[in-house]
Amino acid sequence: MKMKQQGFSLIELVIVIVILGLLAATAIPRFLNVTEDAQNASVEGVAGGLATAVGFVRAQWEVDGRRNTSVILDGTSVSLDTRFGFPTGSSDSGNTSVTAMTNQTCQEVFDNVLQSAPRNVIFNEDARDQRYTVKVENGVGGPATGIDGSTVANIDLCVYHQVASLVLDQGNGRPSPVPDLTTAGAKGVTYNPGTGQVLSFSND
C-alpha cells in the first residue's frame, strides 16, 4: 500500500501567518514600553522614599521642640529652616533658609535623608554612570506659610532629573541641553523645602 503524504494547504499557512501577525501587533508595543515603565517606576520609588524621609525629618524636628536648626536622622545631622521644619542641607553647609538653596544643598538633602540614595551628580558635571542629576531652580517653589504665620515667597525648588531620560553630550557626559522643569522627555522628582512637598514629573 502506498502512504499518501499530506502537508499544509496554502490557505492554512496564510491563516497561521495572519494569526502570528495579529499576535505580534499586540505584543510588540507592550515589550517596547517595558523600559519606559521601569523608568517611571524608578522615579515613583525615589519620590516616595524622599517624601517619607522628609516626613521623618519634620517629625524629629517637632519632637525636638520646633526651634532647632538641625536634627539627627540615622546618625546624620540635617539642617532645616526653623520656619518650616523641612531639610535644607547638611549641618556642614549650615544652610537653614528655604530661599538660599544651592545645587550642593539640594544634593545634600538627597544624599543625607535617603537611605542608600541613588548615585547622583550636579547637573553640569559628567552624568555617565549616574542615576540622577541635581539642580536648584531658584524662586520657583512659590510661597509657603511658616509656623509663626508669616508667608515666605520665592522659595527655591530642588529638581532631581533621571539621567536615563536625558540626552548626554558624548564628549563630556553632561546633559545637553541643560535640564529644567520643561525639558522634553525628562523625568524626575521635585522637592520644595518650604512645604515639604515631593512630586514626580514626566515630560513625555
Rank of each mutant, 00 (worst) to 15 (best):
T82K: 13
L80Q: 02
R66A: 04
D74C: 07
A25K: 10
N40T: 14
T26D: 08
A100D: 13
V14T: 14
E12R: 12
A27Q: 10
V57D: 00
V16K: 08
D64F: 04
L13A: 07
V78W: 00
T35N: 13
L10M: 09
T26Y: 10
V46G: 02
N40I: 13
G49A: 05
V18G: 02
M101V: 05
G85V: 04
L50Y: 09
N103I: 14
S42Y: 06
V98L: 03
L73P: 07
N68E: 11
R67E: 14
Q104H: 04
T82Y: 03
G48H: 01
V109M: 00
V46N: 03
A51P: 06
D37I: 10
W61F: 12
T69G: 02
E108C: 03
P29N: 10
R30T: 08
V57R: 00
A53F: 12
E12I: 11
T88H: 02
A59I: 08
A51M: 09
F84A: 00
S90Q: 04
L13F: 11
D74V: 11
I11C: 03
A51D: 12
A59M: 07
D64L: 06
N68G: 13
D64N: 14
L22S: 14
A47T: 08
E62K: 10
L32F: 08
I17C: 13
V18R: 09
I11L: 14
N40E: 15
M101P: 05
T99K: 09
L13P: 12
L50P: 09
L10H: 03
R58L: 05
T96W: 04
V57L: 08
L73H: 05
D64K: 11
V18D: 07
I72C: 09
S77M: 01
T52W: 00
T82S: 11
T99G: 08
L73M: 07
T82L: 02
V109L: 01
Q104D: 09
S70A: 11
S97Y: 04
G49Y: 10
T69P: 15
T69V: 13
E62A: 11
T76V: 15
S9Q: 12
A38L: 14
T88V: 07
V109D: 01
F86I: 09
V63W: 08
T76N: 11
T105C: 06
A38C: 04
T99F: 02
L20V: 15
